[in-house]
Simulated scan of single mutants.
Amino acid sequence: MGSNHQHRKSIVNRLARIEGHVRSIKEMAKADRDCSDLLLQIAAVRKALDNVGKLILQDHLEGCVVEAIEHGNQEEVIHDLQKALNNFIR
């Protein structure tokens, strides 16, 4: 099912930016920056992670779910999707 991930390059790029952002927050903490600045940056990372999660979900729906339905694996893919959503949306 890996070949149907149209957004994977964008996902990887976004995760790399988030990784850099988290490193910069760590440096801000080491530099004893103001707590409100740290919290603002953490909120930005959370939002970015949520957006990556949405893109991964879109990728999954457009690729894996469609492919599974075409091959008659609806029950399995719906179960897996429900499990993933329950973990993602807490």
Score class of each variant (00 low, 15 high):
39 L>H: 05
69 I>K: 11
33 R>V: 00
28 M>T: 13
76 E>I: 08
9 K>M: 08
78 I>R: 00
46 R>N: 13
54 K>Y: 06
84 A>Q: 07
9 K>G: 07
67 E>P: 01
3 S>Y: 15
60 H>G: 03
17 R>S: 12
39 L>K: 01
14 R>V: 04
6 Q>L: 09
11 I>C: 03
24 S>Y: 07
79 H>V: 07
26 K>F: 02
27 E>Y: 09
22 V>M: 08
4 N>W: 07
4 N>R: 07
18 I>Q: 03
33 R>I: 00
32 D>A: 14
28 M>H: 08
81 L>R: 06
9 K>I: 15
19 E>W: 01
87 N>L: 12
64 C>T: 14
75 E>R: 14
61 L>S: 05
20 G>S: 04
40 L>N: 14
88 F>A: 14
20 G>W: 03
9 K>E: 13
49 L>S: 04
48 A>E: 09
12 V>M: 15
58 Q>E: 13
60 H>E: 09
60 H>A: 01
52 V>R: 00
69 I>M: 13
48 A>C: 06
77 V>R: 03
75 E>L: 10
65 V>D: 01
81 L>Y: 08
13 N>G: 02
66 V>H: 00
67 E>H: 12
3 S>P: 05
45 V>N: 02
66 V>I: 15
14 R>C: 03
35 C>R: 03
67 E>Y: 12
42 I>R: 03
13 N>I: 15
43 A>L: 08
21 H>V: 06
90 R>S: 10
